[in-house]
Amino acid sequence: MVMKKNIQESAINKNPGKESAFQESAFQESARRTKGLLKHQMMHQIKHQLQPHKRIGYLKTFLLLLLALLIIMPLALLFSSSLKDDRFQITAELGSLKAFFVTNPSFNNYIEILGPQAPVPMARFFLNSCIVMAGTVAGTLLVSTMTAYALLRGKFRFKRVIMTGIIALYIIPAEAIMLPLLFLSVKIHLTDTYIIQMLPFMASPIYIFLFHQFFKEIPASIAESAQIEGASFWKIFHLVYVPLNVPALVTVTILQGMESWNQYLWPLLVVRSENVRPMTVAIASFFSTSDIYWDRLFAASVVMMMPILVLYLVFQKYFIASIASSAVKV
């Protein structure tokens, strides 16, 4: 009965023009209908109340846009300053609105840091960061998908125990083991290499768990039927499970890529030479003198920001979804 009433109401809702005709045809039940109509009107009013007026909507948008501009203002400062050739001009203009505008843009700062004769070989540091990031992401994807799959579909014993053990490792903060790990790296002569900047982050409990959750959603019957067809464990993994989980791969790529690109403490500890130094450490080292070369510093920061910014603007949806899913899944 109640359901029928709801359907009637929704019918009214959908065709407001036919409202009166509907009323006439069901004359006998007028009392109930009036009640229903009243309710319908009330609901309409409430919906109206919940959705603010259009003009208020525009005002809200305008205010939000202002707030958003205020929030990204520091980034505008970064880009505009990087185009000012004179570092004393940069510091002189920092305190005024001039900081956000460039009167005569010049790419000299970029040439100074990226050119072949650059006093600070930023191109090299940029390349180093790229290598470390690519290696870390590739390694993480391979290691964590394999582990998650083996722990989900493998037929050996103690799968649960191993999985729980891996998740339990997550409570150890990376920062709390960095100095003992540095000592270990010195002992095994791995400091000052690319590999030591990548290896410690490849087997991350959180990503193993994430893939485990994603893989679980694929029905086991798919794997079983593939197995009956004669596909091996490895084949099912890389021909079925990996291709079916592209969203998870994208998520981990974005999260781990950002993490690796921003990695600061660990390279600060294990990297000494310029050959393998990443951008983060290189940019931070500008601050080690009291006379800071702001012009080069800003240009270097833009160089470091650019790849992420471009990827973010192109794949915005995935970035935000990845961050959200990292929270929801874990």
Binding site: L64, A68, N262, Y264, M279, I283, M304, I308, Y312, Q316
Partner: peptide, 15 residues
């Protein structure tokens, strides 16, 4: 708006 509000998060801490 979402993209703008989220922009600081993708900025590396060093920058």
């Amino acid at each position: 708006l979402r993209a703008m509000f989220f922009l600081p998060f993708i900025t590396p801490m060093v920058i």
